[in-house]
């Protein structure tokens, strides 16, 4: 599985960063930055899913590689 993050949709709610800091960082203005390139390590899959499920702007999706 990998993370699909749509920067254009992000409004800087920071929910992903709060829930899954291993997967998302934030820039100086508070917009999300995806930290993982490629497949999500198994131990972080649950957290990545949580981040996706709580994004108010539907900017994050967990998709098959």
């Amino acid at each position: 599985m990998k993370v699909k993050y749509e920067r254009e949709a992000c409004q800087g709610h920071n929910r992903c960063y709060m829930l899954a800091p291993e997967v998302f960082d934030t820039d100086d203005e508070g917009y999300a930055i995806l930290r993982i390139d490629g497949a999500i390590p198994a131990e972080l899959e649950e957290k990545a899913q949580l981040a996706a499920d709580n994004c108010p702007e539907y900017a994050i999706e967990i998709v098959a590689d």
Binding site: Q11, G12, H13, N14, G30, L50, D53, N54, C55, P56, E57, Y58
Partner: peptide, 20 residues
């Protein structure tokens, strides 16, 4: 609640600047 896409801080470009 594990799935909570609440809109307390608004939606779209006017998302509350002070939300954090």
């Amino acid at each position: 609640r594990a799935r909570n896409r609440h809109s307390a801080f608004g939606l779209g470009i006017h998302r509350c600047v002070g939300s954090n």
